[in-house]
Amino acid sequence: MPDTEAIVGWKTITFGCHILEPGSSAKFMTGDWRSQRPVLDKEKCIRCGICWIYCPDMAYSRTQDGYYEVDMDYCKGCGICAHECPRGAITMVPEEL
């Protein structure tokens, strides 16, 4: 584990620790701490979009052919999509170091 070093100084931190730039949460890579990833079996997928609706990090997006694909920068590996998929088309696979 790396040390948790400061990334900002107490004199340079924003007033009230406010975030002054709207929409900046997109810069926060929640995929950093994923320990498992969702893997899709296209054979089973009916393209219902439930995974896309339920993903708490909005990591899914719809592709041209109607399937849903995950942006691994934001997928935190929670497994909600796999749990909610009505067809059991998503399997959670452990990440390897």
């Binding site: 070093e5 400061a6 990334i7 900002v8 100084g9 107490w10 620790c17 406010h18 975030i19 709207p22």
Partner: peptide
């Protein structure tokens, strides 16, 4: 945003 998460790299400051 007022009141965001203060991760360990920020909280002390």
């Amino acid at each position: 945003t007022m009141g965001p998460v203060g991760i360990p790299e920020v909280y002390t400051e």
